[in-house]
Simulated scan of single mutants.
Amino acid sequence: MRSVTSPTLRISQSSPATVTISGDWTVHALTDGHCLHNLHAELLSCQQRSDPIWDLCGVNALDHTGAQVLWHAWQCRRPAQLRVHANHQGIFERLEQVSQRPLPKPPKQRLNSIMQLGMVMLGFFSHARDLLTLLGQLIFDLGRFLRHPLRGPWKELSANLYRMGAQALGITALVGILIGIVLSYLSAQQLRTFGGDLFIVNILGMSIIRELGPMLAAILVAGRSGSAITAQLGVMRVTEELDAMRVMGIPHGFRLIMPKVLALALAMPLLVIWTDVMALIGGMISAQALLGMTPEFFVYKLPEAVPLLNYWIGLGKGVTFGILIALIACHFGLRIEPNTESLGRGTTGSVVIAITVVIIADAVFAIIFSKVGY
């Protein structure tokens, strides 16, 4: 087997200058050490000379990699004075033909808007199908859990309750107090103008207990717990933990999906009550500062201003919002592909879709119970 000869380049000082190329100009010879870097520097110096003579008759071996190095040094055109061996002539002829060939134009896309609308609709139906499949599996898992409660995932359920419920008390309390203060302050400014100071209890009670409390808690939980659920399932997909569970015969729905849905369905009504209480406390603080209304009077007037049915509507919203957020988060988590880009995109989509669905569900509640609780 013939040994590889290092590629060399010599430049004569005659006029016109002669660039003599010799050795093996192949991928193996060019990638040996810093050979290619040194040749690039010498080829750049050759470009500064006017119409040199290129002598390639001393080249022992030439492949497409070596020919490409020389072709780019010639600025993608054959030099006027070129001496090359007949065996290597065909490579430069092919390079010349390819460089003269025009680039293909991208095909014109007709009905682009209609095609995009169709893709959106297909994506929507794909998500709806997978979500219905997930809901059906959840119903079967709940039936299995009710038949054999002692074999249920109690540890997973308690852990999810702690993470989604107890650890969310701080942020929901802070946002609830601030919203109550802001709403009470704005309402007091208008009511004081018309002498209707006492109606601030009605405004705060109805708006917070029936609408703002469940909505605030749901949005915070969707951004906090919903994204965590999607990220957790997505990381399990990336690290192939879900595949390992399937190989071991551990069902995803019974051990992963159902505990999260049940935990959020139980935690959300409690968080709604907690958010309502904190928002009303913030409203009482602002009402006392602006209108001189004592907290005792506020608490005394609250049951009269807000019928009891509104509390149950708020709790029903909490349960519904919790189930929707958990299902959407699990749905997007299971659709994560095994790469980091899909993980970020899926987590973002989970939060956005969950908040949108919560707002739509709240509008449906408002329409259904429009004549109830007033």
Rank of each mutant, 00 (worst) to 15 (best):
L266T: 02
T65G: 03
I208P: 04
I325T: 13
G333Y: 06
L233H: 08
R101M: 12
M115K: 15
G176N: 02
K155C: 01
R255V: 08
L161N: 00
L62V: 00
K260R: 08
P102M: 08
N310G: 12
M268A: 01
R237C: 15
L242T: 04
V221T: 11
P214R: 08
L220D: 08
F145V: 06
I114L: 06
P7S: 07
D24Y: 04
S15G: 00
M215H: 11
P295A: 15
Q48A: 07
T348L: 09
H148S: 11
I353L: 13
A305E: 07
L117Y: 10
M284I: 05
I273Q: 09
A173E: 03
L302R: 07
L138D: 05
F140K: 04
E42G: 02
P295M: 10
I53S: 05
G223T: 12
I250K: 11
R237I: 14
A217L: 03
L204H: 01
S113G: 15
K260A: 11
V175E: 09
R345V: 04
H331K: 03
A29W: 07
I203R: 04
T356P: 09
A263C: 03
R110P: 05
Q81V: 12
F332A: 02
A326Y: 03
S184K: 04
I328V: 09
V19W: 01
A168D: 02
E42M: 03
L309H: 15
D63R: 05
D276Y: 13
T275G: 12
G283F: 02
V277L: 09
E42T: 03
L95Y: 00
G118T: 04
Y374I: 13
L36Q: 11
T275S: 10
S184P: 03
N310C: 10
G322C: 10
L62H: 00
L186D: 12
L262N: 06
I367T: 10
I257T: 12
G282E: 01
R101S: 15
G205N: 10
I114M: 11
I208M: 13
T65I: 14
V84A: 01
I209M: 05
C57F: 10
G346D: 12
R144W: 14
G118K: 04
A263E: 14
I360T: 09
I336E: 08
F298P: 07
L36D: 07
L70Y: 00
L216I: 06
V357G: 02
H331N: 05
I257H: 12
L157P: 00
V261M: 04
S113Y: 11
D63G: 07
I353Y: 11
A329M: 14
M119V: 05
L117H: 13
R101N: 13
G123S: 11
H148M: 03
I181C: 05
P338R: 02
R101Y: 09
M121R: 03
F365N: 15
A287G: 14
V277P: 03
T193M: 09
G373K: 06
S126P: 10
S22D: 09
H148Q: 06
A41W: 08
V358A: 04
P52S: 02
Q190M: 12
G66P: 00
F298N: 07
V120R: 09
W25V: 00
L135P: 00
A305H: 15
L122I: 14
D63E: 10
A217S: 07
A279T: 02
D24A: 06
T31K: 13
C330T: 01
L198A: 00
I250H: 11
A228W: 12
Q13S: 11
G58A: 08
S187G: 14
A265H: 01
A363N: 04
T347P: 07
